[in-house]
Nucleic acid binder design. Structure first.
Lengths: 377, 377
DNA sequence: CTGAAAGCGCTTACAG
DNA sequence: CTGAAAGCGCTTACAG
């Protein structure tokens, strides 16, 4: 029975012993070249190469230095669906840009709304988190907040103790509704993003709308409501269809519902471009002419909006910038920016409780008028 | 001057002392519920909540257990460009799917071809790496191999000591060229992916083609060459245009070049659909009718291929599956699969040198004939 | 320029 | 069911 010579992977210690120098020296050879003669350094590096040792173990270094060199991105949906959606894909691009500038890793933590074990989710080695569009009651976010990890939220939930990046959804919705009301429309329909995270798709229900778990649709409803009210229209008279996700298929369902059951609707407000695109398809199916017989406006201004036939009027929000800004926000926060997030062992100074104030960054929205909206006939 | 009571973040140790139990017990309360009475467990968890302690530090746990709970994905391009490209986006989807199944994190390490510091790149806490489409001489890969980290390569480089997932590029190229030659074409042009990683875009150069740093274009050239040869056509007589990246813009440039300088070309072989789409645009610009006057075939079968006008004939490769298979390959490798990658401190058994044999998984390609190819007139 | 020592926060046999 | 102890691999003042 051959006895293995126990070929354990070499460590700093092994190498130091082999070379007859201290661990300090080996460590310095890798991480602080100025702390030793280049001669010695060369010798160490050569020996390392020979021994198959290629630098300090990142995990051990992290434990010691307190820096993970990466940030975590908490995503509600699976990564595939996130990439499929042009809006979230753009967001991701922005985040990735910022990480690249800073040479930080990006650890993606997808699918958190479909209840995974809260604890495990945040059990990752990162210097901070970006959370994108989560329902208000999601435990995972509470977990991050409790831990006191640096955190920036994009879109929602909006809570006073957390820095947040979002657009002025209320104003965006107002712009959309005002645009259509200004064109003379009086009979509206609304295609909504989910008010709650339970997967419901169907006609609007009062309790869901008035007590939403998602902030964004709530804000937008208020925006629609305010604009319509100033034209003498009550939201109570406006049929609403809630979609569990932002995609064309559900938008199509919503379109059918609004066009069939609600009869004489001449203008539809959709909370995303993908939903609006679905409504467009439903109109096509019923041979309803857009914008002659029906006006449709979306939200986001994804690439596909301009390319649609007819091209889609919408409320533009700077998606990529939103991602970029969120990442910069996080990376520039004192806790993450400081080269040592974890205080030194003997260090009493303790970075004087850097509870950086939570901030809100409000990005602009803009009405983009294209072919899908026109005067009421 | 108020003296902070040093509100250091609580640890397992702190908590144990507060509660008057051992660290073991606290640890067990979180990680091995069966090791203590549920009464005690509740007490510990309650105290933890109160103290603002939310579970063991992932980094420390990693150092101890040797498991990072994530894999690293090494990408040649920036994440934005990767997401922009439907082919790589599909690949990413497949990888993400597998990670989600296994509840593993995915740490994205983009932009490695544009020389970043090799050392730092792989200084991340992961259980293994997937490397996608890298040039043969890239130091970062060597680094991973030397470290002995579990590794699966997608597409390239193809080296015997590393497990690799790819399609039969040679055969795919053969199918494409045979298809066109079978339609009677005799005057070909080739739009190539890069042979080297130096950013060159321009007419094909013999030394680059015969000694490529990228394996895939090399294989495909051989495939084209073999198919053409059996129809009596020598590659020497075929104009080639090399593109530094796979995108429509460079494809457009290539198309112009081939259509202008090469005169009577009637069939163009492009190594990606995006390149082919660019050629299509160039033909449109010059009012050359496809497929009447010019046949074009791509490679990949991205979503946009079927939607193009005219729709694009191509060689389909299972992009998403490729990603999924690579991830599964890695995750099922003994080193990663075993619940403890790092041997126990006192453990001599040493998992008997699990140098899992490197394997190659060869995925099928398929000729998809659409509108962009037709008989020579 | 170099080395000895402490300690980051945790998990796991092992003994009781 | 519970606790004392070792040790994962590293970095950093500090002393020489």
């Amino acid at each position: 029975m051959p006895r293995d010579p126990n070929p354990r992977r070499p460590t700093l210690d092994t190498l130091a012993k082999t070379l007859g120098v201290s661990k300090t020296t080996v460590s310095n050879a890798f991480s602080r070249p100025d702390q030793l003669s280049s001669d010695l350094r060369e010798r160490v590096l050569a020996a390392a190469r020979e021994a198959g040792y290629s630098g300090p173990d990142p995990v051990a270094r992290m434990l010691r230095t307190g820096r993970a060199g990466a940030i975590g991105l908490i995503l509600p949906q699976s990564l595939p669906s996130t990439l499929d959606d042009p809006a979230t894909a753009a967001l991701l691009r922005g985040i990735a840009d910022a990480c690249e500038e800073r040479r930080l890793g990006l650890l993606i933590i997808p699918g958190v709304v479909r209840g995974r074990d809260t604890q495990r989710i945040v059990d990752v080695a990162v210097d901070g988190f970006i959370a994108y569009s989560l329902p208000r009651d999601l435990p995972v976010l509470e977990e991050v907040v409790i831990r006191g990890d640096p955190l920036v939220v994009i879109d929602q939930p909006r809570r006073p103790d957390v820095s947040t990046i979002h657009v002025d959804d209320l104003r965006g919705a107002q712009l959309a509704a005002t645009h259509l009301a200004g064109l003379g429309h009086r009979r509206f329909g609304i295609v909504s993003l989910p008010f709650r995270a339970d997967g419901y798709t169907g006609p609007g229900q009062v309790d869901r709308i008035t007590a939403p778990t998602y902030d964004v649709p709530g804000e937008r409803m208020q925006g629609y409501g305010a604009a319509l009210a100033s034209h003498g229209i009550s939201l109570d008279d406006v049929p609403i269809f809630e979609c569990a996700r932002s995609d064309e298929e559900l938008g199509f369902q919503a379109g059918r519902y609004l066009l069939e059951s609600a009869g004489a609707v001449t203008a539809i407000l959709a909370m995303s471009d993908r939903l609006a695109l679905g409504v467009l398809a439903a109109a096509r199916e019923r041979r309803i002419k857009v914008p002659d017989e029906l006006s449709i406006i979306g939200f986001d201004d994804i690439d596909g909006a301009a390319r649609a036939r007819p091209s889609l009027s919408t409320i533009r929000q700077p998606l990529q910038l939103k991602g970029y800004a969120a990442a910069r926000f996080l990376l520039d926060s004192p806790r993450v920016a400081s080269s040592q997030a974890r205080p030194e062992p003997g260090d009493r100074a303790e970075a004087e409780s850097v509870t950086s104030e939570s901030e809100i960054l409000d990005l602009p929205v803009e009405l983009i008028v294209r072919q899908s909206t026109g005067p009421r006939r």
